[in-house]
Design a protein around this nucleic acid. Structure first.
Lengths: 334, 334
DNA sequence: CTGAAAGCGCTAACAC
DNA sequence: GTGTTAGCGCTTTCAG
């Protein structure tokens, strides 16, 4: 293994000079810096983690991801990939924590100095991990919005605005009776923040526009889709606008309507809240508000890195939703 | 932060005794060990990573996962989850490397001591990372099988046997003309090992049973599915047995056959090589050979941990394929 | 069975 | 602008 002392010898300077030349924490003459850099290259030197950690920076970011039902896998994977990519761009690595570990994982990471900071996903309204984050001084960024985000750094899609945007799109097309097909019930039971916020936005926009509306959680699978579709139409025979916030249900729902003799968008308009690729590659391309998983991951990393550098960061960042019109929505009665 | 010295003071012993009591690297009397353990609990001590690294063990396993087209996301996620879970069970954490980093990521991890070992997924026949693995003494386990696995530790599904198993199942049902719908062409171009091995197994079993057979790579999406289905039938009008090794294509392919007026399994029998949940939840439950992602991840971790402990490990472990009969296969002409 | 002491590779306070 | 030196928290000789 090549140490900082090896580099120092090779460059004809002291170890500390090498350290400073590399970290830039104090001015070094161009001449020596160049010699140091050359020595580093020639020897293939890389700072050992153990030593560096004394300087209180492991260069690692922890990412806590959920792995339980009701969470859609591709979204999580998108987070992970974008987080790793962004972290690498800032010269950091990523340690993967599963949510199952919960507080324990965060505690371990914080106390052993394994990671410099942590990014949490799948944040609940009352998240059990938040007290830990507030008490320990472990820098953190949440992807998601808890009930009381004061003092925390959060980034998320503005799901409330997303719900409103969907309704407004349908209202503008003349639809008067709308339904929201939501996530599986357990998501609401756990009080996952984003699901509730979407419902709020949906409901309040529907009220504002004086639309008749209803909300149904829904599990996944063709049977569940068929069941909600039937229930919806029984309950609201005048239904012509549907918002679906349940990624794996988009295709089954399209099938279900077709099966009931309803054409999309001829008889029913459908707008989905889901990752853009899902909407674009559905059986019928679906008008959608995109969940920008990759951007959320990238933003979270940027915020955390800034936080680690001591710079001030905004408390909550809500990305504005954007609706992309595709083939699944049309004016009512056309 | 609570250090080993704090614990030592509290327990009334020397720091080294605490170290030994915790690592078990030399015999400690029950009395002192108990006192040490009590002190650890009371103080909430956890060994700092920086210090521990001196002992040349970071307690971290690196996992390199691919993120590019042609790789099905859920499989990768399954690896990740099972690896993290298994690693935790062995008191290790997991560092996430993306394949895009390639050699660089492995080099960094090896030289900085960030991780003690690495698990590689998506191994190619001629994998550019293998020389690195052999030259550095970084302990590693591959999920997948390269062309020359000598001196490496590999674990994978026996894809060759899986291909054979599918054909034998169809042959036993009386099918005489069979086709393999494979992964997207780029997978073969990259010479990903598992895809080739499946083709080999499929082909040789078909020959052995004197079946007429053909192999077609195929991209994803409904259009691609329809296109291969049509091509297949044009090329082999007598076709009654199909093997699909392309996870996201299972449903579209079922659709495509239906669209062509062919019932499954009435006219065509379909067997898939994919994760069990995909096969079980398809529009028609599909007879399948499971890709046991979770078990592969778990095994990889176990092997790596054993390797780190210096114990001997087997070179290559190929898990025997298992076929689960579901509703998509039936005797020919029934 | 236990302690004292010498490092490990690195950073940072303290010189010059 | 650079070198010397004193740690950091831990493991591991070396000595009893």
């Amino acid at each position: 293994m090549v140490t900082i002392t090896d580099v120092a010898r090779r460059a004809g300077v002291s170890p500390s000079t090498v350290s400073y030349a590399l970290s830039g924490k104090r001015p070094i003459s161009d001449a020596t810096r160049l010699r140091v850099q050359a020595a580093v290259r020639e020897l293939g030197y890389r700072a050992d983690v153990g030593g560096r950690a004394r300087g209180h920076r492991s260069g690692v970011l922890a990412l806590a991801v959920p792995m339980r039902s009701g969470i859609h896998v591709p979204v999580v994977t998108q987070f992970a990939v974008s987080v790793v990519t962004a972290a690498r761009a800032h010269d950091h690595d990523v340690l993967l924590l599963t949510q199952e570990e919960g507080e324990e994982g965060i505690g371990r990471v914080a106390e052993t100095g394994l990671a410099d900071g942590v990014i949490l996903t799948d944040v609940q309204l009352q998240d059990s991990r938040l007290p830990l984050l507030r008490s320990r001084s472990l820098p953190s960024v949440l992807i998601g919005l808890p009930a009381e985000p004061e003092g925390l750094t959060c980034v998320d899609l503005d799901f409330r605005a997303a719900g409103e945007l969907c309704v407004e799109h349908l209202a503008r097309l003349g639809h008067r009776t709308v339904a929201l097909v939501g996530s599986p019930p357990e998501v609401y039971v756990r009080r996952t923040a984003f699901a509730r916020r979407l419902v709020d936005g949906f409901t309040s926009a529907a009220d504002r526009h004086r639309l008749t509306s209803t909300v149904h959680p829904c599990g996944t699978g063709a049977d569940a889709a068929r069941a909600v579709a039937e229930r919806l139409l029984r309950e609201l025979p005048a239904l012509t606008g549907v918002v679906v916030h349940n990624e794996p249900l988009v295709d089954p729902l399209l099938d279900a309507f077709e099966h009931l003799g309803l054409r999309v968008p001829g008889d029913v308009s459908l707008v989905a809240v889901c990752p853009a690729p899902v909407a674009a590659t559905a059986r019928t391309p679906v008008t959608s508000v995109a969940v920008p998983s990759a951007e959320l991951g990238t933003r979270a990393v940027r915020l955390l890195i800034r936080k680690l550098s001591g710079a001030p960061v905004p408390g909550t960042t809500l990305l504005p939703p954007r609706l992309t019109q595709r083939a699944s929505t049309a004016p009512r009665g056309v």
